[in-house]
């Protein structure tokens, strides 16, 4: 049931160990998008010339128009941009939820753009954790079960209770989503995403549906996971204030990368100006 497979796949062959989890070392002040050579070797994702066109009903949407980008092991990157700038599309492609219309997306040396549906499923199962704006919890399952639904198919997960402890919900294990506040639901979603010990954590507007106080609690959890587990983390937001907690900020506009900048220091979430 958990999709055991015998044939090696291009995304996750035996010869492709996941990128090393290393705490970010590049904290030196830099204002350009130049990246040290040492870090470049640790690129988890290499995106080249990616475009994405899709149809929404009878409307044709050009979501990405040629994106080049790299994400590095252990870093916390914020993708910033107004709605419709293509940041969700980019994140979906990085997470193997969607495939680009053209271009290359390399993860640990393998091209996600050319991967089959089964390979992408395998990739998501092994390497990726997601956090969504509207939490996307399964309403008929409790907090613990919502985490279990993912750990059940993971290779070396932490126990659901431990993951929920990590996000401060150790006391609300058996509550259904409808019995939890928005912030709590989002923390369950984060627990669900990190419980499998993913290599990358992709967060799509994780605070978008929350008030600022609750949002900060959620961001603290994300920051802690990134720091303690060394998980490469990408956070999408249209809230420029959040950008200060990142190692790098990637700004998107109209389906293109408008700017990449490196923060001299990562600001702790509780000090962010919202």
């Amino acid at each position: 049931m958990a999709g055991a497979r015998t044939s090696p796949d291009p995304v996750d062959g035996d010869d492709a160990p996941p990128p090393a989890r290393s705490a970010p070392e590049h904290r030196s002040p830099q204002t350009s998008d130049a990246v040290p050579d040492a870090a470049r070797r640790d690129a988890v994702f290499q995106v080249r010339g990616v475009t994405k066109v899709y149809r929404m009903g009878e409307v044709r949407v050009e979501a990405l128009r040629g994106v080049d980008l790299a994400l590095y092991a252990g870093e916390l990157a914020v993708l910033l941009g107004p709605s419709g700038s293509g940041k969700s599309t980019l994140l979906n492609i990085l997470g193997g939820l969607d495939t680009p219309t053209a271009g290359q997306v390399r993860y640990a040396g393998r091209d996600l753009a050319a991967a089959s549906d089964r390979e992408l499923t395998r990739y998501r199962r092994r390497h990726v954790g997601f956090v969504f704006q509207f939490y996307n919890l399964i309403p008929s399952l409790t907090a613990r079960e919502n985490v279990a639904v993912v750990t059940e198919i993971a290779r070396d997960p932490m126990p659901p209770a431990e993951a929920l402890d990590l996000v401060g919900l150790g006391a609300r294990l058996d509550h259904f989503p409808a019995q939890l506040s928005g912030g709590e639901q989002q923390r369950v979603a984060i627990a669900r995403a990190v419980a499998k010990r993913p290599d990358v954590l992709l967060c799509d507007e994780p605070t978008g549906a929350l008030d600022s106080a609750t949002g900060i609690v959620v961001l603290e959890v994300l920051e802690r996971v990134n720091r303690e587990l060394g998980t490469t983390t990408a956070v999408i937001t249209h809230n420029a204030g959040i950008a200060q907690m990142a190692d790098r900020v990637i700004v998107l506009a109209d389906g293109r990368i408008a700017e990449v900048r490196r923060n001299a220091i990562r600001v702790a979430p509780r000090e962010l100006s919202w």
Partner: peptide, 13 residues
Amino acid sequence: IGTLKAFGWASAD
């Protein structure tokens, strides 16, 4: 369904 697939549940599951 989307969420489950995002977390790596296979289509067959």
